[in-house]
Design a binder for these strands. Structure first.
Length: 271
DNA sequence: ACGTCTACCTGTCGGC
DNA sequence: TGCCGACAGGTAGACG
C-alpha cells in the first residue's frame, strides 16, 4: 500500500508514543513474507528505543536487537492504547506498557523481521541495495544524474528499482515524471542535464509535500494513529486514464512497463 | 553486472 | 446473482 510518504507518515504517527515502551507479549497471525527469525518470546521484556525509516522499511530499535517492518503492498500499522481483538488480516502485534502496535496486511507481502541490528547480515542484505533517501540532505544531484546516465532502462522502471533513489513507488513515479515533463518510456541514459535537474527536484518536491500534508494519493491509507490521509495530493495522472490532463486537457494515457501500469500525458511529457 | 520475469496473497471490480 | 479473469500501493530471487 505504501510508498515512502505513507511509510514516513506512519512512522511519525507513532514513533514518539512508542519510544521507551516495554514489550510484554507478542502475537503472530498468519505467516508474512518471511518468518520472524526468532522465538517471539525472546522479544518479551525488551524495550523500544526509537523508530527509524530506510526506504520503505521501518526500523524499530530495541534495547537489544531491532525489528524490521515492511508494509508490502497492503500493510498498515496501528498503535493505540486499546484495539479490538485481532482480525483475520492482523498478523503481528506487540503488546507494550505504552500501547499495542499492530500490523494489518491482507495480502501479506509485508514483513516483520527480528535482527540483531544494522550489522545483522540479513539487515545488511536487505538494506544494502537501497539507493539514496530522497528527503535527506545528501540526495545530491550529481550521483543521481550519473545513475541516470549509466542506465539503459526506461526512466519509470528505473525510478521503481530503487537504484537512483528509494521510496518512489508506482503512483509517485507517474506523478513525479508528470511534474518533470518526462515521458515514462524515455531511456534514462538519454535524459539531459536540464531535465534530470527537473526530475531530481520533482522527486523531492512531491515526496516532501506528501509527507508534510500527511496526505496521500492512496484511497485507504491511514496512519498508525488511525488518521486518514487528507487527499491533499490528488493525482495528476495516476489512475486517470482517458480523463483530461489537468494542465492541457489532452487525455491521460496508460501503458504497462514491467507488469506495472504507468500513466502520463503525451502532450505535457516529452520523450 | 545488468535487465527481465516470477512469485508471494487476498480483495475488488468489470464483463459476461 | 454468480463466476472468472484482470488488476492492485512491493520487491527478493531466479534466470538469461
Amino acid at each position: 500500500m505504501p510508498e515512502l510518504p505513507e511509510v514516513e507518515v506512519t512512522r511519525r504517527s507513532f514513533a514518539e508514543q512508542i519510544a521507551g515502551a516495554r514489550i510484554s507479549s507478542v502475537f503472530l497471525g498468519k505467516p508474512l513474507r518471511w518468518p520472524l527469525g526468532v522465538d517471539p518470546q525472546e522479544l518479551v521484556g525488551r524495550q523500544v528505543l526509537q523508530v527509524r525509516r530506510r526506504g520503505k522499511y521501518l526500523l524499530v530499535d530495541l534495547d537489544r536487537g531491532m525489528l524490521m517492518l515492511h508494509l508490502g503492498m497492503s500493510g498498515s500499522l496501528r498503535f493505540a492504547a486499546e484495539l479490538p481483538l485481532p482480525g483475520v488480516h492482523d498478523h503481528f502485534q506487540l503488546t507494550t506498557d505504552k500501547g499495542l502496535l499492530r500490523l494489518h496486511d491482507p495480502r501479506r507481502f509485508g514483513a516483520v523481521l527480528a535482527v540483531s541490528g544494522d550489522d545483522d547480515p540479513l539487515a545488511v542484505k536487505l538494506l544494502a541495495r537501497l539507493g539514496p533517501e530522497p528527503l535527506e540532505d545528501d540526495f545530491d544531484f550529481e550521483p543521481f544524474a550519473r545513475g541516470l546516465k549509466a542506465s539503459r532502462l526506461a526512466i519509470k522502471p528505473l525510478l521503481l528499482s530503487g537504484k537512483v533513489v528509494v521510496g518512489v513507488g508506482n503512483i509517485y513515479a507517474s506523478e513525479v515524471l508528470f511534474l518533470a515533463g518526462i515521458r515514462p518510456t524515455t531511456v534514462a541514459g538519454r535524459i539531459g542535464r536540464e531535465r534530470a535537474l527537473r526530475l531530481h527536484a520533482a522527486i523531492r518536491q512531491i515526496l516532501a509535500r506528501a509527507v508534510e500534508t500527511g496526505g496521500s494519493t492512496l484511497k485507504d491509507f491511514s496512519a498508525a494513529d488511525g488518521n486518514a490521509g487528507h487527499f491533499q495530493l490528488e493525482a495528476n495522472v495516476y489512475a486517470r486514464e482517458g480523463l483530461p490532463c489537468k494542465v492541457c486537457s489532452a487525455p491521460v494515457r496508460q501503458l504497462r512497463q514491467g507488469q506495472r501500469s504507468t500513466f502520463f500525458c503525451a502532450h505535457c511529457q516529452r520523450p
